[in-house]
Simulated scan of single mutants.
Amino acid sequence: MNHAGDLVNHAGDPVNHEAPHAPRAARDRLRALRGRSARRDRVRRRALAAGALTLLGALGWTVVSGALAEPADAEGKPLIVPAHAVGEQRTAFGYGDPNAPHVLTVRFDPRDPRSATLERELGSTVRELADKGAYRIEYHGTTLQDGKDGGRGSARALNALGAAAEQGPKDFAALFAALAARPAASGTDGAFAEPQRLMEIADEAGVRTPAFDRAVTENTYAPWVAKATGQHNSSGTSDVLLDGRRLHDDHTDARTLSAVEFRGLTEGLLPVARR
């Protein structure tokens, strides 16, 4: 017997007031759950995309309309390799006798103050031993500072070094030393993004020619710089290795090897260094 006021269906069974709403409530809960899940997925995808873009930026690449593209300076230009480029893919600046028994690898970024200090401390000694035939040098340029701080100073300086290398290893070395004597301030492009300033530094170093000016103004070696840094950026910068063995491994501060320390480390490996 039903209490007064209760509704019954035709079969005499009580009507459940909540039944018609239960499926809708379940659907609402499911919709809310899916909405939260979708939002989490979107956040996760954005985080992954941001991380990928950060990595690509550190490698000196840009993304245009969702597609990987070469750095802007290299766009639409032919790949021209500077003379005296060395390495398996010819992505390093070469110095010294190519038949020397050992290889000294110098990793550098023109905008990195540590690289500038390393060159000022060691550059003349490193090249002096190369001139004696102790080893050949492979200079691996990077653009990590461009990726970290923004700007194009490292890439533009590497293009200028390519123009100097085209004229000969001695011209490359002279400009390399001159750039290190004027390191860009951390977090800024400094003067290295300005073609006119690069030409003035080359003039002071005694390597400026009409061909050099043209290559700097037109960014002739930008595609080569993009290829080289795409290969070398992942290995770091401000480092020196002899036959693959790191000689300078302090990446926590600006300390660099002195010329005396360098000679001490290489003396046992390179008899010619004692001459």
Rank of each mutant, 00 (worst) to 15 (best):
D213Y: 04
T142D: 08
Q196F: 05
R44K: 12
K227I: 06
A184E: 14
P195D: 07
T229W: 08
G268F: 14
L265A: 02
E200Q: 11
G190K: 07
A32H: 11
P98E: 14
A72L: 15
T125K: 14
R46P: 02
L104H: 10
F262V: 04
R152M: 12
Q89H: 15
P110R: 01
R46N: 05
P195F: 06
A228W: 09
Y135I: 02
T209W: 05
T142Y: 12
R245K: 12
E194R: 15
Y135Q: 12
P20V: 07
P82Y: 03
R34A: 05
G141C: 07
N9R: 06
E194F: 07
E204H: 08
R152D: 08
R29P: 03
Q231T: 02
G35L: 15
G264I: 08
G60H: 06
L247N: 05
E194V: 13
G206Y: 04
W224F: 07
A193E: 11
H84M: 03
V15P: 10
V106G: 00
R46K: 10
H232M: 06
R246P: 10
S235G: 01
D13H: 14
T142V: 10
A69M: 13
A205R: 03
H248R: 09
L241D: 13
R214K: 15
A38L: 15
D149E: 15
A134N: 04
A178Y: 11
V86G: 09
A191R: 12
G51K: 03
R208W: 12
A32I: 08
S234F: 15
A4S: 00
L55E: 13
Y221N: 02
N159H: 02
F172V: 03
A178V: 03
F192P: 05
A191M: 09
D28F: 07
A85D: 06
V106L: 06
V225H: 04
P113D: 00
P78V: 05
G230R: 14
A173V: 08
D146E: 15
K132D: 11
W61Y: 15
E128T: 15
V8C: 07
P98T: 08
H84A: 03
A174G: 01
D73V: 11
A58R: 12
V216I: 06
N16Y: 11
G141D: 04
R214H: 09
H102K: 10
E18F: 10
A50R: 13
